[in-house]
Write a protein that binds this DNA or RNA. Structure first.
Lengths: 100, 100
DNA sequence: ATAACAAATCGGTAATTATAGATTTATTAT
DNA sequence: ATAATAAATCTATAATTACCGATTTGTTAT
């Protein structure tokens, strides 16, 4: 949970957008027909479609957001679902408040 | 005052360090003998010495921090003094809190 | 006006990041 | 087993960033 690494993750518009979309899946993504809910977050295909970037790029972006602890990934069958980790996001803001 | 631009400015360790040092000039820098105070902040030479990077690099870094509104620059004679803009820094954190 | 020095700007190179396509590794349905 | 599909990983290229040295621009002291 390094501040610089997090700031790097947040210095790209697409990754910021993704985090923002994940705040309200119902509003920003079509429903998961397999699952019927967003309890585990949103599957990568939907994020990719919304961001309009390649699968590999989005997969890498999500890995970066995972690495800094801002999202969790849950694999269910073929799909991986990504969900914000609110606690870590808040902690980061706290840390920023202190150290900045 | 763009979020991404600010995050970029904050994704470099040296710039983060500088912002941190500027929080407490008395503690982090030798006294300004010309001026006798840090009311306008800290002069570039001192920041450069502390960061141990070239004059041009530090000048550029300070310009970046200025561009995002995190420091103000005051030229007095030959020297330019840099001071944190606490209001803008706080605003940024607020904005982050909302948009993230 | 000239010398001296601080800071800004310009032009360059090495390192890093953004992004893609191809390949590989799950996982499920036939 | 095989085909189909989702996601991760590997390799590559273009764009951006991290610096630096050289030059220019301000400012002050001679």
């Amino acid at each position: 949970m390094n501040l610089i690494e997090i700031n790097k993750a947040l210095s790209n518009q697409v990754r910021i957008d993704i985090l923002h979309w994940l705040k309200d899946p119902e509003k920003n993504f079509p429903p998961h027909k397999e699952l019927g809910h967003f309890n585990f977050g949103v599957c990568l295909v939907f994020i990719k479609n919304k961001a309009d970037l390649s699968q590999s790029t989005i997969s890498q972006y999500m890995a970066q957001l995972q690495n800094v602890g801002f999202v969790t990934a849950t694999r269910l069958g073929k799909w991986t679902y990504f969900k914000r980790n609110e606690e870590n996001i808040e902690n980061y803001i706290q840390q920023l408040q202190k150290e900045l």
